[in-house]
Amino acid sequence: MATNSHTEQPSGHKGAFPPFNPTTFASQLFWLVIAFVVLYVLMAKVALPRVGSIIENRQKRISDDLASAASLKAESDAAIAAYEKALADARARAQAIANETRDTQTAAAEVSRKKLEGELNAKLADAEKTIAATKTAAMANVRGIAAEATKAIVERLTGKAPDDSAVDAAVSASLKG
């Protein structure tokens, strides 16, 4: 406006207050209607659906992402629960196997110990039997030796062989003694 002088003003209203100058009303109305209608159509048909769809897409994306995050969290929770369960199961099974093994081992040890003891007892019994037999045999030998020694002593002392039955009786009597 600084470039325009008063001489270029619209005709004949010099000094009138421009906002109340009715000669400009028609053109202002004309241009206002055009500008407003053009802007309205641009907004209603182009700009607003565009901005609205962008905002809506973002909202949709956010809610989708939140939903998928929630489902992923549920999945991971389930996985953790399954893992915990598997761990507990494995622990229980390990415990069971350990117990079972210990029991079977103990039982086997018991069996072999018993078997060994039985064998040892049998051997002991055998040994005792052998000892007894040896002892009996030895005792029998002792009697024979004692009889022979008695016979020899008597023969040396008396010069004649004693009667076998008398020697036997004497040996038996002294062995009993």
Binding site: H6, E8, Q9, P10, F17, P18, T24, Q28
Partner: peptide, 9 residues
């Protein structure tokens, strides 16, 4: 101060 409101063809 009023000049700025002038409508110019």
């Amino acid at each position: 101060p009023i000049h700025q409101f002038q409508i110019i063809d």
